[in-house]
Amino acid sequence: MNATKVVIIPCSGIGKTYGTVSREAAYEVIEDLRPGETQLVALSMLVLGDEQACKVVTENPSVTVDGCKLACATKMVAESGGVVAADFAVLDVYRRNRQFKPKGIAELNEGGQKLAHALAEEILAVVDDLTARDSSSEDDSATKKPEAGK
């Protein structure tokens, strides 16, 4: 069992299509793809300085998903004392997937849903890399322990 979880912090932009894409992608990873290895922290909790939210981001690697160039999620994790292991910008992902034009706010169109899925796949690759590294370091320490006891 891994000691840490990858924390995902999406954009909190309400009423913004790209913000919705960021959240849908985060939900897909957290709820469907890697529920055991990931955890969501709401950006608003970091903005409010919530102790528990800040503790989670300082004790675990974070993946931020920003809806615009203001990059609030990335900035807030850094300000909260966390380490951003990877940061995604929805616009960059859209540039790589132009066929998925996102529209809609409360409910994304088909293009938006597909874009969110493409983004989720990119996040997933990072999550798997981070959790593999974590497992690897745990294995290393497990094999080293007996040696240390010699």
């Binding site: 160039k69 859209y94 540039r95």
Partner: peptide, 11 residues
Amino acid sequence: FWQQRNGDVAF
């Protein structure tokens, strides 16, 4: 003004 009003350019 145009760029701030219309947001980040995708294409």
